[in-house]
């Protein structure tokens, strides 16, 4: 298992092979199984320091990474700053290097600009895990979605998965597309034409503008959040109209496959992407996703530390 892993950074699922993705998922499953047997705390990362370097607000991802690090026995430190407040003086690279100089082994980086975690790897000696960069990728979210689907269905290959909503501004969509395609799923992206980015079909996905047309063929529906904060200008006429065409309601659930899984990366806008009865209903695995996020992040940090130790011992 460990021989299939040598990465010191996890920046996106585009970079990872199917075998590497499976390695993380298997490792996460092992952590989950151990937790189920009361073995939730480990000392695998004892003496390792992990910094949450967040240049964009986040509650659940940061909490999840924090908890994951501590469950592995690592020390954690948080650094949170609005990217805008840094823009006048110190650059984000200076900030990161200063924190590294305090003796940090891994950086968990969230930033509103795409590519920033990648740029940090050029300037830092620490491991870097991308906790969401702009509209590029959010690999651990993609991994926890894959984990949840695999856990519920026993497989990814051959399933039809729909990503619904704002594909243009969604880093979760990109990570999902790479991961799902690599593991053999069929992917449909569905949303208003204004929120489907250019040349998306080249990624090997199908495009639909009508949720009602794809309901019957999908095994999994991942309802992406409408990113009000990323939208410039008018991408659709109104929230009301969006909910009419793309909102998941119990009426739509009734027309979907009887065992359809409903995922949402959260935070959800209740009444927009999905109605409360769907969010809390039997098809929803939204809270399982959150639970699984912890184990996926434990697996990711653990594997990164293994790779770091290997890199330090082999000249």
């Amino acid at each position: 298992m460990k021989s299939t892993w040598s990465r010191r950074h996890v920046l996106g699922l585009e970079d990872l092979s199917a075998a590497e993705i499976t390695t993380i998922l298997d490792e996460a499953a092992r952590f989950k199984e151990m937790a189920r047997h009361g073995e939730a705390r480990h000392s695998l990362l004892k003496g390792v320091t992990i910094c949450n370097l967040f240049f964009e607000p986040s509650t659940r991802t940061k909490t999840s990474f924090n908890l994951a690090a501590r469950r592995l026995g690592a020390d954690t430190v948080d650094f949170t700053a609005a990217a805008s407040s840094l823009s006048k003086g110190e650059t984000f690279i200076d900030t990161a290097r200063n924190i590294e100089a305090m003796g940090v082994d891994h950086m968990v980086v969230r930033h509103s600009t795409s590519g920033t975690p990648f740029l940090l790897t050029k300037h830092l000696g620490t491991g870097v895990v991308n906790a969401g960069d702009g509209t590029h990728e959010h690999p651990t979210q993609g991994l926890l979605d894959l984990f949840t689907i695999r856990e519920q269905r026993g497989r990814i290959e051959g399933l039809t998965v729909a990503l619904v909503g704002d594909i243009l501004h969604s880093r979760v969509a990109r990570s999902n597309i790479w991961g799902l395609k690599k593991l053999g799923a069929k992917v449909i992206v569905c949303g208003p034409a204004t929120l489907i980015p250019a040349e998306i079909r080249q990624l090997g996905v199908e495009v639909s503008y009508r949720l009602d047309e794809i309901l019957e063929q999908t095994d999994v529906i991942n309802l992406l959040r409408i990113q009000f904060e990323r939208q410039r200008g008018a991408f659709f006429p109104s929230i009301y109209e969006y909910a009419q065409f793309y909102g998941m309601t119990s009426e739509r659930i009734a027309r979907a496959k009887s065992d359809v899984l409903i995922l949402a990366p959260g935070p959800i806008n209740r009444g927009v992407e999905l109605t409360p009865d769907v969010a809390d209903g039997p098809h929803s695995v939204i809270l399982d996703q959150v639970t699984n996020g912890l184990f996926v992040r434990m697996a990711t940090l653990y594997l990164m530390q293994l790779a770091r130790e290997q890199a330090l011992t082999t000249p």
Binding site: E14, S114, T135, H136, I200
Partner: peptide, 9 residues
Amino acid sequence: GYYSTVLGL
């Protein structure tokens, strides 16, 4: 184009 979509820029 394709690369702006992949890179999220």
